[in-house]
Amino acid sequence: MRLEREVTCAELVELVTAYLEDALAPEDRERVEEHLVFCDGCSNYLEQMRATIAATGRLRAEDIPRELQERLLAAFREWTPA
């Protein structure tokens, strides 16, 4: 994906995972950071994503209750792209 000019909030939501994984092209990373300077909503969203990753990153498979694990797996199996 190559962004022409400033990133919109909708674009940033799509890019946030790549941003956190350092997988964006340098010019796109620069545009994301420019957007973060003035967009409090997207800055909050990024912090929430960071916090979620930090929290879930500590989970082990055995920490998830069996019933929840089965419900999640069923949901993933039924998932189809929009």
């Binding site: 350092d22 964006l24 340098p26 990373r29 620069e30 950071e33 420019e34 300077v37």
Partner: peptide, 21 residues
């Protein structure tokens, strides 16, 4: 000094309004 990955990032006078902090 690779943009946005490595290096010390800074701005020139004309870049200031983009990076207010």
């Amino acid at each position: 000094a690779e943009r946005c990955r490595l290096g010390i990032h800074a701005c020139r006078r004309d870049d200031l309004p983009f990076w207010l902090g």
